[in-house]
Design a protein around this nucleic acid. Structure first.
Lengths: 158, 158
DNA sequence: CCAATTTATTTCAAGCTTGAAAATTCCAGC
DNA sequence: GCTGGAATTTTCAAGCTTGAAATAAATTGG
C-alpha cells in the first residue's frame, strides 16, 4: 500500500533518517557560515571560491567543461561565474590552440593572490567551526563518511 | 604573516579540513540526488518539500515569519515558495484573527496527502542512499555529529 | 488621540542553479 | 571536399536565495 513500506527494517531506516537530518544540519550550518564570512568579510561568494579553488589547483587553466565536471555543476553555471570573476579581474579566458570551440579559464596573478589569502582564512574557519571535534573524532568521522560514500554517492574531486 | 597561521596545530586543522570535504561531498551528493528524484519522479522541489514538511508538523498552520524561522531561510524566500505551493493547490494562507499584518500558511487536504506520500518516498531514498552504513555506524556517526553541533553551529528544527 | 517605534510581510535586485535549446566548431566517413 | 553527428560553449527561462527597502498594521508613550 505505501510506496516504500520497509516494514521489516523500520528501525534502521529511522536511524538513517535521523542521521541524515544531523548531517544536513551540520553541513548546511557550516556552509551558511562560510557564505556569510566570504560575503561580509571578503566580498565574495562560495561559488566563486569553489571555482577559484579548482583553478588554483590547475595553474595552466581548465577547459570550461572540465571545470564544470570537477565542480559537478552545469556548463551554463560556470559560464556565469567565470564571467563575474573575469569582470573582477580574478580570472580570464584564453583560446585553446587546436580547438576554436574550447576556452581555457585560468586565474590571473591577482586571482592567485586573492585565492591564496581566502584559502588560509577558509582553513581557519573550518578549524574553528569543527573545533569541538578532536583529531581522533575527526578521523573516526572521516572513516565513517568514507564508508557511506563508498558507492552510495558517486565520486568527484579531492 | 598569514591570516590564520595555526602553526602549532597544523595537523589538526588539516584533519578537520579533510573531514569537511568528505562531509560536504556526502551531504551535497545526497541532496543533489534528493532534488533529482523530487523533480524527475514527483514534479516538485526540495524547498517546497521542506516547507510542506514544516507545515505538516503544524496542522493548524504557521505564521510566515515562524515558517522562515523554522527553516532558517529569509522571509522573502518563504513568500515565494508559499506562493507557488498555493498556485498548485497544496497550501493556502489564512488571516490571523487578531492581527491584520500576519498570515498563517497551512497545507490544504491535497497538500497533506501529497506530503504524506513524498515523506514515505523520502525516507526510502535516505535509507537507500545511506544504505552502506549499518545501524551501528549510523548511531556512531550521529553521536559524533551531535558533538560537532554542540555549539559550533546554532540549533534549529528536528 | 497622536507620534514613534516595532513587528509582519511583501517586493525587489542581484546572484546562483539547472536543463534545454541554440550556435559554433570539430571530426569521421564517404 | 562534403555531410552528418559529436563536442564545446553560451544563452535562456524558471526557480531558489539573500538582504535591503517598502508597506502596512500593531503597540507604546506621551
Amino acid at each position: 500500500m505505501t510506496p516504500h513500506p520497509a516494514r521489516d527494517r523500520e528501525p534502521a531506516s529511522k536511524e538513517r533518517l535521523r542521521l541524515w537530518l544531523k548531517l544536513l544540519k551540520l553541513s548546511s550550518g557550516v556552509e551558511t557560515e562560510l557564505r556569510r564570512r566570504l560575503r561580509d568579510d571578503h566580498g565574495t561568494t562560495l561559488p566563486r571560491f569553489d571555482v577559484m579553488a579548482a583553478l588554483s589547483r590547475h595553474p595552466d587553466g581548465l577547459k570550461m567543461s572540465d571545470l564544470s565536471g570537477y565542480l559537478k555543476v552545469s556548463n551554463g553555471n560556470v559560464t556565469g561565474i567565470v564571467d563575474r570573476l573575469t569582470e573582477e579581474g580574478l580570472a580570464l579566458r584564453v583560446a585553446v590552440p587546436g580547438d576554436r570551440r574550447a576556452q581555457i579559464a585560468r586565474l590571473t596573478p591577482k586571482g592567485h593572490r586573492a585565492f591564496a589569502s581566502l584559502a588560509e582564512y577558509h582553513e581557519g574557519w573550518i578549524d574553528d567551526l569543527l573545533g569541538r571535534l578532536t583529531p581522533g573524532d575527526a578521523r573516526s568521522l572521516t572513516r565513517l563518511l568514507d564508508k557511506a560514500l563508498m558507492c552510495g554517492v558517486d565520486d568527484d574531486l579531492t
